[in-house]
């Protein structure tokens, strides 16, 4: 699903890349920017966390003439005299104005790096409202946002992600450059698709999906296995037929003390042997420990 999302989202789409301190989702975000630039789309980056130089350095080799950077990095709170974009300007009017100013009449892709910065300074309902308005507004075709999920309460992350049409959660992979992406995609019909994939990002920001982890598939087959009858292919019988039961009841068990057995033991027949023992003087018989002479 990841490659399809990279190839382009439907108009009105809202994609969130969720990351944590263990693995930064920024490179994946850059891959999305790179892919959009390669499709000759205008990309507007609202950068709170990365400077313009660093972003352009990271996107080396892409068509950055269609990239418009709105600098919210140098002065996001208006502490100096000429702030370019402050976090308090994050509203529909200002953003539409910014995008219309620079881009052609074609709707553009808006990249927000990151939503966490905005959520830290604005109340979540405001942010959600603005995002929803942007989605519907028309000036923006697609919104792609980075969200540091571990910085916020779970409820806030949840409500922002509910707005999104696709959520990609990235986590570190088992080795080296690999990372795991959990993708949840909601199509307009309301169908929700989930997929997990291992990917790595090449130096030119292309994403290579290596494989799908196998444990997802095995989880699906689990219920089928439980339905099968464990007594189906046994090498022995679990139930008895009537004749078998009668035969079983007839059989005398070896340690049941029957009358015949008792008499056979008590009255030994004629001619049977018997042990007579008379201790002589040399016999050292210890009353208290009769087994004293045994070499145990």
């Amino acid at each position: 699903m990841l490659p399809e999302l990279l190839q382009g989202t439907d108009a009105g789409g809202f994609l969130i890349i969720q990351d944590s301190v263990n693995y930064s989702g920024r490179h994946l975000l850059w891959s999305f920017i790179n892919a959009a630039l390669n499709r000759e789309e205008a990309v507007h980056v609202l950068g709170f966390e990365v400077s313009e130089e660093e972003l352009k350095d990271g996107l080396k080799g892409s068509h950055i003439q269609r990239l418009h950077f709105h600098d919210a990095y140098t002065d996001p709170l208006g502490w100096t005299d000429q702030p370019a974009f402050t976090v308090h300007q994050f509203c529909l009017e200002k953003l539409t104005h910014l995008i219309k100013q620079t881009s052609q009449h074609k709707p553009a892709t808006l990249v927000i790096d990151s939503l966490s910065w905005i959520l830290r300074h604005r109340c979540p309902p405001d942010v959600c409202k603005t995002l929803q308005q942007l989605k519907k507004g028309g000036a923006v075709r697609v919104i792609i946002g980075l969200l540091h999920a571990d910085m916020h309460q779970r409820g806030i992350v949840g409500s922002v992600c509910h707005l999104a049409s696709s959520v990609i959660t990235v986590a570190p992979g088992m080795k080296g450059d690999e990372a795991v992406a959990k993708t949840t995609k909601r199509s307009k019909s309301g169908k929700v698709m989930q997929e997990e994939a291992i990917f790595c990002i090449k130096e030119d920001l292309t994403v290579v999906v290596q494989s799908k982890p196998s444990h997802l598939g095995s989880r699906q087959t689990d219920p089928e296995e439980q339905e099968t009858d464990p007594t189906a292919n046994l090498t022995f019988n679990l139930r008895l037929s009537d004749t078998e039961r009668k035969a079983k009841e007839k059989l005398a068990l070896p340690f049941v003390f029957s009358k015949e057995k008792k008499s056979a033991l008590l009255h030994s027949g004629p001619g049977s042997g018997r042990i007579l023992y008379e201790p002589d003087a040399n016999d050292d018989y210890d009353q208290e420990d009769p087994d004293d002479d045994l070499d145990v």
Partner: peptide, 20 residues
């Protein structure tokens, strides 16, 4: 702690700085 615990300020600070 999932960020729910308001008392764990140093933890949140560390996470925020790690992102930067």
């Amino acid at each position: 702690d999932d960020g729910d615990d308001e008392g764990e300020g140093s933890e949140r600070l560390l996470k925020g700085l790690s992102h930067q």
